[in-house]
Design a protein around this nucleic acid. Sequence first.
DNA 1: CTCGAATGAGACATAGATGTCTCAATTGAG
DNA 2: CTCAATTGAGACATCTATGTCTCATTCGAG
Lengths: 182, 182
Amino acid sequence: MVVDRVQVLRDAAGLLMRKSGATLDEVARAAGISRATLNRHFAGRDALVRALEDLGIAECEDALAKAQLEEGSAADAVRRMIRELEPSAGLLAFLYSENQLFEGDEQNEGWARLDANLVALFRRGQEAGEFRLELSPIWLAEAVYGLVVSAAWSISEGRLARNDFTTMIAELLLGGAVRRDT
Amino acid sequence: MVVDRVQVLRDAAGLLMRKSGATLDEVARAAGISRATLNRHFAGRDALVRALEDLGIAECEDALAKAQLEEGSAADAVRRMIRELEPSAGLLAFLYSENQLFEGDEQNEGWARLDANLVALFRRGQEAGEFRLELSPIWLAEAVYGLVVSAAWSISEGRLARNDFTTMIAELLLGGAVRRDT
DNA sequence: CTCGAATGAGACATAGATGTCTCAATTGAG
DNA sequence: CTCAATTGAGACATCTATGTCTCATTCGAG
């Protein structure tokens, strides 16, 4: 029974999202393996977190690619993006709380690439006259992360249905709370 | 030079927001006191985090009280609330990442009280015909936290101007990204 | 079946954070 | 000024998570 590296990372993320300070022993148990094996695959906690970061970035890049952000209206692209991001929301919630990842000198450049894609999408929406100009694309990009993490957290707490993930985020992000007087 | 307990907590929050795993020695230095004194005022890391939680809840309750959420239109109440919440955003960002606070059996009931106030505000907006019915008040309340934390983080990263805090959050939360065809 | 590779269980030493204590220096009220 | 209270610096023991190692067991390819 050879260990599935990605599955271990998924299980680890599932636990660490709720208990970011979990022991490596707890992480191993959550993944259904022994601490020794966990250490054979990831040399220390730092390596594990880095692997989770790499996985998170890779999943997000896949999601953005699948969403084809350049196609159709920007609003629809945002909706597709949120939908594709949903499976990675838990992992993102963990990484978001791991603020050490964004402090050091060698931050993973993957985040900058993702940011650039998001910013480009919102900028495209503004230039097409779809989106408001008062909200800066950088802030909108940041808000996407914030809302995704909030939604992931709400789901894990039972306050939000998993099926509502895409709708709730996209409707809030795009339309806001105020009623349209159509 | 008697130690100002609240100031110590503020300094601690300022550091812990960016480095949640900081040593008590680092926390003490950030607060300008010695580790011994820090320990005299807060018996251990756990007590320190609890004190930060209490402070955060108290500040939020003050902010909501000052904002007078029952007065005027719900949208204006939301704007006032965000504005009053700004000084506590950093502290909230730290507490938000301290997920251990929300897992145990004895969660501070202050969070539930705050949630109730937020939910009531959004429900009032819906019942007054101001807010859309598609977005559940619970999700809107959760989104407030997410956006406040995102904005606090963006500001500390230099990606968002502190002056834009209230506007960016309120405009996104209330109006969304899509342009109104007024 | 056979055997090499991977795993699980556990022991072990280590490192780093933490809690406690002491003592000298500083503060501030009376 | 005087003195009690508070603080800073540092030593010290402890504790927990971690990394490493060993050995028996299990898995799976050939």
